[in-house]
């Protein structure tokens, strides 16, 4: 198990609108891959196909060389974090995690009330919410709510976690601290992470590799450094140059870190 993912010739249309055109790429086990692209280019659709919320019209998806194209979402050992948190608002932070542990068919009742509670507490502590076990989502800040969602996702021990713009609803300070935490979690759990963002700085600062996407196609998938140094085509060049200031800033950031 190295938690890699291979996407082969995936296409998808809604009605007569083609959203993904023959997309192929490989996500390496344990890597942090960001997907960058303009609004409406098909990023969310791609994630939903990877996790099994949509089925592709054609093409295949392999996880560690097993064909999972038609496998139900719950059997893929993958997790997903949504932009709007998607917490169970009527439950406390702790209960959100506990409930997932107790109800998940993938875990086949391997938790009882006591062990689920213990595990839930542990997960919330990992994301720094030890003081908020009994808070309802409405009593938490956006950043804290997203932490609960991350704890809930991590609790099921997924091999791969997909993030769909998890921070776009948060303010800048919160983004910076959550960004560092997500990176740390990636290292700690050795989880493969695929991360959609609109924020180029974020992508350049966090990622092992970045996929640049436009109009249902992947234009380039490479390290941040290579994307800046040798953009594959005009679109990538323009798309990245538009944010030249950000680019320079994050390069500095990037180099300082590595």
């Amino acid at each position: 198990m190295i938690n890699k993912l291979a996407i082969e010739n995936v296409s998808k249309s809604f009605g007569n609108v083609a959203v993904l055109h023959d997309v192929s790429f490989v996500v390496r086990g344990g890597e942090f891959l960001s997907v960058l692209g303009p609004s409406g280019c098909g990023k969310t659709t791609l994630l939903r196909i990877l996790i099994g919320l949509e089925t592709p019209d054609s093409g295949k998806i392999f996880k560690d060389d097993a064909d999972i194209t038609t496998l139900p979402a719950s059997m893929r050992k993958m997790g997903m974090v949504f932009q709007n948190y998607a917490l169970f608002e009527n439950m406390t932070a702790l209960r959100n995690v506990e409930y997932a542990l107790l109800k998940s068919s993938a875990l086949k009742n391997s938790y009882n009330r006591a062990t689920a509670r213990e595990k839930a507490e542990e997960m919330l502590e990992i994301v720094g919410l030890e003081k908020f076990f009994d808070s309802k989502p409405s009593q938490l800040s956006g950043g804290q709510q997203q932490r609960v969602a991350i704890a809930r996702t991590l609790a099921l021990n997924p091999d791969i976690i997909l993030f769909d713009e998890p921070m776009s609803a948060l303010d800048v300070d919160m983004r910076l601290s959550l960004r560092a935490e997500i990176k740390e979690l990636a290292k700690k759990f050795r989880t493969t992470m695929i991360y959609i963002t609109h924020d180029q700085e974020e992508a350049f600062a966090m990622s092992d590799r970045i996929a640049i996407m436009n109009a249902g196609k992947i234009h380039q998938i490479d390290t941040p450094h290579n994307i800046i140094e040798s953009p594959a085509d005009e679109f990538v060049e323009n798309f990245v140059i538009k944010n030249i200031n950000i680019k320079i800033n994050s390069l500095i950031h990037f180099q300082r870190k590595s």
Partner: peptide, 11 residues
């Protein structure tokens, strides 16, 4: 996304 969360987590 509540139902999607359910589908993903097997609830």
């Amino acid at each position: 996304n509540l139902e999607s969360v359910g589908l993903i987590m097997g609830i």
